[in-house]
Design a binder for these strands. Sequence first.
DNA 1: AAGGTCCCCAACCGCCTTTGC
DNA 2: AGCAAAGGCGGTTGGGGACCT
Length: 302
Amino acid sequence: MGRQPCCEKVGLKKGPWTAEEDKKLISFILTNGQCCWRAVPKLAGLSRCGKSCRLRWTNYLRPDLKRGLLSEYEEQMVIDLHAQLGNRWSKIASHLPGRTDNEIKNHWNTHIKKKLRKMGIDPLTHKPLSTAEEQPKEQKKQVPKVDKSKQPETSSQSTITKAKEEDTSMTSSSFDLIDMTMNNENIDGFCTDEVPLIEPHEILIPGPAAPSTSSSSTTHSPNFLQQFHYFPADFEWPSDNNTNKTDSNNLSLWDTDDFSGWDLLINDDDSDTKLALDSLSSPPFQCLRMGFDQDSWTYPLS
DNA sequence: AAGGTCCCCAACCGCCTTTGC
DNA sequence: AGCAAAGGCGGTTGGGGACCT
């Protein structure tokens, strides 16, 4: 007897999310907050597994997500934290505001691993490849111990100087790490304590909706921002060359792509959309922007 | 232009942990 | 204490875009 599936899979949709599904999920969560993921699909009118809804929200739809490549600083943080925590992506992600475990995991597997190998460093052990290769496999499975005297250059220049103990939710070293993170001015100017509230009048409203040619929310036009015809008077876009694509070092609270979710909310005028727009200034939405829990509103990064 | 290959990343799967009874 | 349900996590996969020939 195997374990029962997390939900009734019969008739449930799988695969990429459509814009319509995204819109339903966003509308639901903005109006009701996050609660009981198992019930969400039913209540939101989605033919999806609750787990799938949670994943979609946490990894893609949350408006506080940063997007785009990790900055040099973030990458170094990931390397340092990986040296101490191993493949505990969610723990690593908790030290990088606006980044998800999935994103970091993907970035590790596609970029950092290669980068480290090129530098002659074993991404598993964080030791020089020549010596690392000699180690038995069992050792490689373990969380690598940080031996500062033998660390390669990247680690000796570590932004994290204190070893992370086997993680309890908030050990003193955890606080140290977070303090260091938050005190460092190079972390893209982002601090969860300083997430500004946006007044209702500051909410970006797009111009006439451009005809959508894609059913997928992941394929918004790169010129998406050009659809906006209203900005707060003092609003400044990150200055990055002539494109809308911002360097990750310039990422502020929301990057260009961060608005992809809002695109879904505002590119038509049906009642769901109106509901979602009305919710933008509602307490749940403000909780979301503030990044903290308020009663029914539970924030994933907290 | 067409076909093949590579690469990235969103999403799924299954196991583990936490929570509530 | 034991069980089940729900949530969380990490490994893996596959679709699709980018790049190459």
